[in-house]
Amino acid sequence: MLRRIPIGYRFLTPLAVVFAAVFAYPFVYSLWLSLTNYTITRRNETRFVGIDQYTGLLDNDTYRQALVNTFVFVLLAVSLELLLGLALALCLQRQRWARNVTRAFLLAPMFVTPIAVGLMFRFLLNQQIGVIPEILGTFGLEIDFFGPDLALFSMVAIDVWQWTPFMVLLLLAGLESLPKQPFEAARVDGASRWLTFRSVTLPLLKPVIVVAVLLRALDAFKVFEYVFAITRGGPGTATETIQYQVYRTGIGFFRLGEAAAMAFVLVAVVLTIVVVLFRRLMREAT
């Protein structure tokens, strides 16, 4: 029977098998789970519930809160990383001496595993034993970094600390690969630094910026380690993000059907953002 398949397709078989095993099967299976009330501790009672899990999420306040938290986190973290990253990349591009050393130091946070970063900041920022609150205390500043008002923003700051270097890396590579002549033309044309940045640098760098933002945003949507290591979603639900809620629902409460539905809603939202951004980029490129 195999002989009747064209040889090209036969070569594809190993990849197709691996793909089916590690991607297609889990994907379809979790999609199926999201349409059932599957709970690990009550597997015998599993039944098909259609889109009930999805409609149920609409009325679920904690899920909505987690969605809002996640979006606030992604929006703030990626915006700050972009602004800081661009500023640093512009400075590094002009740097004349000790370039490699500076770059190596600057990129260091990226190489620490996020769970370790989470633990590190958990202690650094701890109100009782943390060094940062203590230093601030000497100036009379009493700040509870993991209190209900600030916890989410502290998570943003930690993400910015760890991932701005990634932005710098991409934007610096983008800046250094831009053609030189339009910039020389702008100098001769009499453009000020600000006008050159606004009218030449930014538009030329836009494709790189879109890709960098996209990569960072996709990664930021997955935020889990900081929450797990520091706040476990608290105080209350102040830092409960989608990923953490999916984890808690699925692995903590064993409600895998509901967790799968939560995950698929996030996938749909993220895919929509990616498609819209890429479409805009493609349209501008042509």
Binding site: P179, Q181, P182, E184, A185, A186, V200, P203, L204, K206
Partner: peptide, 9 residues
């Protein structure tokens, strides 16, 4: 300029 150096955007 030799390569025109127009602003592509």
């Amino acid at each position: 300029f030799q390569n025109y150096a127009l602003y592509p955007h």
